[in-house]
Write a protein that binds this DNA or RNA. Structure first.
Ligand code: FES
Ligand code: FES
Lengths: 141, 141
DNA sequence: ATAAACCCGAGTAAAATAGTCAAGTATCAT
DNA sequence: ATGATACTTGACTATTTTACTCGGGTTTAT
């Protein structure tokens, strides 16, 4: 059970963006340098973030990205959804009435994993980008 | 972020074992058939569970495994630890004072992931095998 | 015109996962 | 005693997923 770099980097990059999100757009190159994430990889991630309207892009020289909403309104769950960082605990298809090994009923542990998924999702629903930068106000990164 | 089969199957198999854990040991073959998990794979998993003293083995005909403690005392966290299902959210080494990309300070999101890890771990610390079988008393599996 | 930036899709090496397989040893029922 | 059942161990491997890279484009400020 571990976090993949897609989710991690997306949040990292957006935290960086939120910090420097004044009037001027922030370029991926800057984020790449500050956070130590490959530029090419960042482009992939931001392409998804833009499609889900979490950021806006500004092309051309002096271009970059800006947040599309207030940091307070961007919850981690939105970011994770945007970059396809799934939280997958059950093995079966949730909609299906069948169990995980093709059995007609749900397995012994299905409800447990479902509960776990809710537990984790709750965390991501609560936390916003703003929480993140507030917590780090005193730090230099 | 997803659960691997090792953790999932370990809990599934132990839930099955806890249910049928009367006087007689339960053979992996039975668990394999009931839960649809490969016997060879179960053997790997139970080898670890035995080494961590979560189950006891009884060899020979009519042999099998029994729980080594009361179902109430076996928390999911113990099971996960036994089979090396890790909960890994931070990228850096936790003990190290360095950040994840080799930087001298912890990254912007380190505390967040740490909090997430605690949040998930808490869930596994609370839940016991007993909770699992209680919840399923009414079910037929 | 040039350079800085975003945009897009395909491709790929490495790591992790999810097992399988082979060759045992112990114990019980008969 | 003997066979069958079941645990024990370690190595090996196919598949999938991850974590990128690469090559080409387009837009825009200066
Ligand atoms: S996880 Fe849903 S039925 Fe097993
Ligand atoms: S996750 Fe610990 S420093 Fe980045």
């Amino acid at each position: 059970m571990k976090l993949t770099t897609k989710g991690r980097y997306a949040v990292m990059a957006l935290a960086d963006l939120a910090r420097f999100n004044n009037i001027n757009p922030v370029s991926l190159r800057d984020i790449s340098l500050r956070q130590g994430i490959s530029l090419d990889y960042l482009e992939q991630i931001f392409s998804k973030l833009r499609k889900k309207e979490i950021v806006q892009s500004i092309r051309g020289t002096q271009g970059g990205y800006i947040l599309n909403k207030k940091a307070k309104e961007i919850k981690l769950i939105n970011i994770f959804e945007a970059v396809d960082e799934k939280i997958k605990t059950v093995q079966c298809k949730k909609e299906s009435k069948k169990g995980c090994n093709g059995k007609p009923t749900k397995c012994l542990t299905h409800d447990l994993w479902d509960e776990l998924e809710n537990h984790i999702t709750y965390f991501f629903e609560q936390k916003s980008l703003e929480d993140l930068i507030k917590d780090n106000l005193t730090r230099r990164v």
